[in-house]
Design a binder for these strands. Sequence first.
DNA 1: CCTACCGATCGGTAGG
DNA 2: CCTACCGATCGGTAGG
Lengths: 219, 219
Amino acid sequence: MARSRAKDYDDKRLSMLHRAAELFAASGYVGTSMNTIADACGVSKALLYHYYPDKEAILFDLLSSHLERLVAAVRKASASAGDPVERLGMIVTTLLELYRHADAEHQVQIASLRLLPEQKQQPLLASERILVGIMSDALAAAVPAAKQKRVLKPLTMSVFGMLNWHYMWFREGGPMTRADYADFVVQLVLAGAEEAAAAVARPRSKAKPAGRSRQAALL
Amino acid sequence: MARSRAKDYDDKRLSMLHRAAELFAASGYVGTSMNTIADACGVSKALLYHYYPDKEAILFDLLSSHLERLVAAVRKASASAGDPVERLGMIVTTLLELYRHADAEHQVQIASLRLLPEQKQQPLLASERILVGIMSDALAAAVPAAKQKRVLKPLTMSVFGMLNWHYMWFREGGPMTRADYADFVVQLVLAGAEEAAAAVARPRSKAKPAGRSRQAALL
DNA sequence: CCTACCGATCGGTAGG
DNA sequence: CCTACCGATCGGTAGG
């Protein structure tokens, strides 16, 4: 009995978390009232406060659960792969696939994580750093040019840029699947990194190799 | 006299807009009170309401000015370039260079544009679409693979993903300049697009060419 | 009668 | 688990 009650409790809590994520994604964290969340979940505000001490705890638990899911899945993907290129592909595909049912959480992570007080941001930023580290290691192993000192960071962040931006334009049911876009990103990086590396790997200087597309005049 | 007064008025207005952008970027649109904005600008709240009828008008004017600046600069960059590759480089470099002094406005665009009522979003989304269109045209002209039916959109959005994400990691004064990263993105796309295109250009099917890094099992 | 501004306070709603 | 509330602060406006 206590078991089934605990299960109900967690089920309810997780469903409320997801509903809250959708509301935060639509109206922003501050723009969503506790009353709105309670109504949307079909519970009283008092019950909401039975699950969480305050509004901040909802945002924290939401992001914490989301990021821990991402870390676990990406770790598993990274471990299960054979060669480095396959590993990179697994990681990118896994991330895009997880976002399928966590679009709201993903948007809240981007827009509202920084609204938490620094102390509560800390463990969440640590999870983000773990994800970045796994991706970075995978890129360094799969892409020869990524081993260069100044290339790894911009390359890693470019990949996250492409992945984290996908929610702005990617629509389910179109001609392109998530796996297609994952493949697109991986191939872009594998085939383009060496040329791109030349743009940042050399020490900064005014003189540019002739024939390269560089707009020094503008800066 | 009337002229110089009008000039003061506009100077003051623009400086208040930028201050508001910084506050919105830090605490969110709803999380920033009119009192906070007025205090930060060193004016009374009544004066703030002399410049803008309500809080929404501040957000709208802020984003409207920002996007119009982007559109004007990108149009100019596009028109001034000679060959297609140079045009693409000019556009990407121009965007990253504009963000140097409009980081707050850029973040507000990403996080808070959608909080406006739909009718007020409309002209702002139209400006965004113009930017996307110019980038898309430049990519189609500079990158052979981008002429394929299903490649242009993901490629365009990948570029915007990389550029729009840069504020999360790029720090001024590091070993890499904005121009360096602009070049990095352009070279990545120029060198990698053809291989990436293969991932989305072919009709969807379960059978994949052997040797390609595809994780069908995961999906 | 106008525009540019002030100190003070309105009605309504937020998180708790 | 609900209704009834609170102290505080919100966006916006009053008279002058």
